[in-house]
Design a protein around this nucleic acid. Sequence first.
DNA 1: AAGCGGATCTACT
DNA 2: GTAGATCCGCTTC
Length: 199
Amino acid sequence: MPLSRADLPPDAVDAARWLLGKRLARGAVAVEITEVEAYLGVDDPASHAWRGPTPRNRVMFGPPGHLYCYTMHGHTCCNVVSGPEGIAHAVLIRAGRVAEGEAEARSRRGDVDAWKLARGPGNLTRALGVTMADAGVDLFNPSSPVRLTPGREVPDVDVVAGPRVGVSRAADEPYRLWIAAERSVSAYRRSPRAGAAGF
DNA sequence: AAGCGGATCTACT
DNA sequence: GTAGATCCGCTTC
């Protein structure tokens, strides 16, 4: 059974949990998602959508199930837009484990350990070959260059939550979810601009 | 028209 | 653990 758009929860945190264990596929490469971050659109000061629509973030304000891509520091990062339309909830795909097409992924990433091929959002897009040209594609359309496909069920006891990496606002919200004991999960770094940890 | 700041990565100590 | 490369979008002038 292919995944359907109706399976994707509208709330970004729910969508993030749902995406763990699913696969993101492009060309011969498929990555099993191991680490994600939820961004709550217009209600989230850490989201690119917080200040409203711009040419860059317009995909996030569109229908769910599409790919929001952006570049920073010379890297491409990609998000799954959730719903409802106009609220701009999205889930950043931070890391994954290459499940298919390791040779093709390695041709782009070079000679690194297998668990590092898609570790970190920039490395993940490089391993898959995702670029800004893929921005806005429908992840549930089988003829799209990038697709979401079924993976494995991840039990709740294997899922850990914590603060998002590198954000300077809302830096303590536990909107980052990952699979415990997965080596492909990237290291936590707090933004130097975020205040002291607020416990 | 220019400056600033960032949802990063790698290398080096 | 820390520093530097690197570059585009958004804000402000």
